[in-house]
């Protein structure tokens, strides 16, 4: 027998706006975001290992495919779509674009969000810091070299924004 489940309503902040969602208890965060038309977080490996489903919850990067939607109730959720919502790319996005730090682009939102969090916590990471921080994100096109360059470039951009 396949049991049926009752829907529940959750309220949370999504990309700066208060929202409400009807969800089922076994749905994950990525599935719920799709109902909001947000596809930047995408399930790939399904095991939290590739980072394609990265979402920021209360300022922390999480694997959306391993996060129950029910646990989002009351939380502050930011997806990659929010970073350029004002029409301007964030310094990290700009750096990814300029260094060509992606090929197929499927893993890119995850990397971009992780780099945002990395630079928030550690504005001047060494290459070793970068490699450690991004070790849970996979890029099958292997743009890793360019991604490291992009992180360095983004760190510079953010520094000059802050001082300029």
């Amino acid at each position: 027998m396949v049991p049926t489940a009752a829907q529940q309503t959750i309220r949370f902040t999504l990309n700066g706006k208060p929202v409400e969602a009807r969800i089922l208890p076994h749905h994950n965060l990525v599935e719920m975001l799709q109902d909001f038309g947000l596809f930047g977080a995408r399930e790939s490996c399904g095991q939290g290992l590739c980072g394609c489903c990265t979402v920021l919850v209360n300022g922390n990067a999480v694997s959306g495919c391993l996060y129950l939607a029910a646990f989002i109730d009351g939380a502050d959720v930011v997806t990659v779509e929010h970073l350029a919502s004002a029409g301007t790319l964030s310094p990290v996005q700009e750096a990814f674009l300029e260094t060509g730090a992606f090929q197929c682009g499927f893993c890119t939102p995850g990397f971009v969000l992780m780099v945002h969090q990395l630079l928030d916590r550690n504005p001047e990471p060494t290459e070793e810091d970068i490699r450690h921080y991004l070790s849970g994100n996979l890029c099958r096109c292997a743009s890793y070299r360019e991604i490291i360059q992009a992180v360095r470039s983004a760190a510079e951009k953010r520094k000059s924004c802050a001082t300029g």
Binding site: H132, S135, G136
Partner: peptide, 12 residues
Amino acid sequence: LRTLSNVRVRNV
């Protein structure tokens, strides 16, 4: 902790 799983897992 630095090499335990990955940042997202450690966050949660």
